[in-house]
């Protein structure tokens, strides 16, 4: 079998590339085409978690419907009850001495 000279093979390959409209890349350089070819993954990524309705926002958007956020009402009620029992959040420190007293170890 007679061997084909490499120059001729190269010409055949370049001709084939021009016919089938592919990129002639004899040195097999990386062209980065895969980053353009790949599908965009963002749209499906965003859809992973089911959409949740922001209740507070909905109430603010439609004040005429007079809806009530039960969880928020309950939370405020709990805070009030705790305050009555003396278990509320401590007062904000007014100066450095106050803040030192608050962080002091007992």
């Amino acid at each position: 079998m007679a061997s084909i000279p490499p120059a001729r093979i190269a010409r055949i390959v370049s001709t084939r590339c021009s016919i089938f409209e592919t990129f002639y890349n004899p040195q097999s350089l990386r062209t980065g085409a895969k980053y353009l070819r790949a599908r965009l993954r963002g749209p499906s990524m965003v859809k992973y978690y089911p959409q949740e309705i922001n209740i507070a926002k909905a109430i603010r958007a439609y004040p005429e419907l007079e809806m009530v956020n039960k969880a928020e009402v309950q939370r405020l009620q709990d805070v009030e009850d705790k305050k009555k029992r003396g278990k509320g959040a401590p007062k904000k420190a007014k100066d450095k001495a106050d803040s030192r007293r608050a962080t002091r170890k007992r």
């Binding site: 350089l29 990386r30 062209t31 980065g32 085409a33 980053y35 353009l36």
Partner: peptide, 8 residues
């Protein structure tokens, strides 16, 4: 990415 990975 295309530009950075493009060896040409």
């Amino acid at each position: 990415l295309f530009v950075a990975r493009n060896e040409t």
